[in-house]
């Protein structure tokens, strides 16, 4: 028996909206500790990793580990039927479920929707993501980072991110010209302005903006985002989900000349 009831169902809707352009189908692994999901994009350049802890759910029960193979497109269609204020419950009684039940309840419990989504069996090639002690960590407003990526992608497909003790510099070079945005440490009490840099070792890495713009669809999940970098490592972009867990995106760097 597996049942997970999320009080703020809108969080689940936002997670699926955040990843639907990146991955087509995913395996959600349910265990006693919660839900986890890991999937790569079709070009094997990016990896998304979701972890939702059982204690972040209103109700959570998972008698034995199960894997739920879902089509993101079909999941999206079902979730469109959930109101932003609904609770969302996932449920199955089978051990090898062929479908997953969804219940959407409004606040007054006066409207209850029930859907059943057919499951897929996906070969799960999961990757080992080593715990990395990143040498450059940037915490900043997710809206601000999203804006920087959007603005720079009009000049080039590739952004170079260079960190130093007191600032991070996003540089682009394209046919029309070049540009850079430098963001400094800023302990402002305004969320949108605050920038925290923890730079043990400066890094200079190059990434495809197309992927960063896809990752930034997760801005609605958290007002802050952290960029985690070490030389010769994928960039890890993390959106923490209050009291529930985190959505992490990994992007392999480009070889820059």
């Amino acid at each position: 028996m597996f049942e997970a009831k999320l009080q703020q169902g809108v969080i689940f809707k936002k997670i699926v909206d955040a990843i639907k352009d990146l991955v087509k189908s995913v395996n959600i692994d349910a265990s006693t500790s919660g839900l986890s999901m890991q999937a790569m994009d079709s070009a094997h350049v990016a990896l998304v990793s979701l972890k939702l802890n059982e204690n972040g759910f209103k109700d959570y029960r998972c008698d034995r580990p199960i894997t739920l193979g879902l089509s993101i497109e079909n999941l999206s269609k079902i979730l469109k039927c959930a109101g932003n204020d609904d609770t969302i419950t996932l449920q199955t009684d089978e051990e090898e479920p062929s479908s997953l039940k969804f219940f959407f309840e409004n606040q007054q419990a006066s409207k209850i929707s029930e859907f059943s989504l057919n499951l897929m069996s996906l070969d799960s090639e999961s990757l080992g993501i080593p715990d990395t002690d990143y040498s450059s960590v940037i915490q900043m407003s997710s809206a601000e980072f999203s804006r920087i990526c959007k603005e720079l992608s009009s000049i080039s497909e590739t952004v170079e991110i260079e960190t130093s003790k007191e600032s991070v510099k996003f540089s682009v070079q394209g046919d029309i010209g070049a540009g850079s945005i430098t963001v400094k440490n800023n302990q402002s009490d305004k969320d949108v302005d605050r920038v925290d840099l923890q730079i043990d070792q400066p890094v200079k890495l190059t990434f495809a903006l197309r992927y960063l713009n896809m990752f930034n669809k997760a801005v609605s999940l958290s007002s802050t985002v952290s960029l985690n970098m070490s030389e010769e490592n994928p960039l890890m972009v993390e959106y923490k989900i209050d009291d529930l867990g985190s959505l992490r995106f990994y992007l392999a760097p480009k070889i820059s000349d």
């Binding site: 790569m40 094997h44 999961s126 990757l127 080992g128 080593p130 392999a252 760097p253 480009k254």
Partner: peptide, 14 residues
């Protein structure tokens, strides 16, 4: 010219 590396270069398949 830059070229894109594959995520498999960095994370081993379990």
């Amino acid at each position: 010219q830059t070229d894109q590396r594959d995520i498999h270069l960095f994370f081993s398949i379990l």
